Computed example of a mutant assay.
Amino acid sequence: MRTIFAEYNPQCNSIDVYTSAGYMLRIDCWEAEKNLKTTPGSDCALNALAIEEPLEYTKLYLDGTMQIWVDADDTLYL
Rank of each mutant, 00 (worst) to 15 (best):
I4V: 15
D16A: 08
E7F: 14
E31Q: 13
W69N: 02
C44A: 12
M1V: 14
F5D: 15
L62W: 06
P40R: 00
A6D: 04
E7G: 11
I51C: 08
E53S: 10
D74P: 09
T38D: 06
E33R: 03
A21W: 09
M1A: 13
G64W: 09
T38C: 09
C44K: 13
M66S: 04
P54I: 09
D16C: 07
L49H: 10
R2A: 10
I27G: 00
Y61W: 04
L46Q: 02
E56V: 04
A45Q: 01
A45H: 00
T39C: 05
N9V: 15
L55M: 15
D71T: 11
Y57I: 08
L25F: 15
T39H: 02
Y18R: 09
N13I: 03
E52A: 12
V17N: 07
L78Y: 15
L60D: 01
M24S: 05
S20C: 12
Y23V: 07
D73S: 11
D16N: 06
C44S: 13
A32P: 07
L76R: 12
V70I: 05
M66K: 00
S42D: 03
K59C: 12
A72S: 14
P10M: 02
T38L: 11
A32R: 06
V70H: 03
A6Y: 02
E7Q: 12
M1N: 14
V17I: 13
D28K: 00
W69G: 05
M1H: 13
P10F: 03
L25H: 13
W69V: 05
L78Q: 14
N13P: 08
L62Y: 03
L78R: 14
T58I: 05
Q11E: 13
V70S: 07
G64A: 04
K34Q: 07
E53G: 06
T75C: 14
E7P: 04
A48G: 08
G41N: 08
Q11Y: 10
G22E: 04
N47F: 03
E56I: 05
I27T: 02
K34M: 02
D16R: 05
L49P: 04
I68F: 12
K37D: 11
R2Y: 14
F5Q: 09
I68M: 12
C12S: 15
I15W: 06
Y77N: 15
D16Y: 02
Y23H: 14
M1P: 10
T75D: 09
R26G: 03
D74T: 15
L62V: 02
T65I: 07
W69C: 08
L55Q: 12
Y77F: 09
T3R: 05
A48E: 10
N9G: 06
A21N: 13
V17L: 12
A48T: 08
Y61Q: 06
Y61R: 09
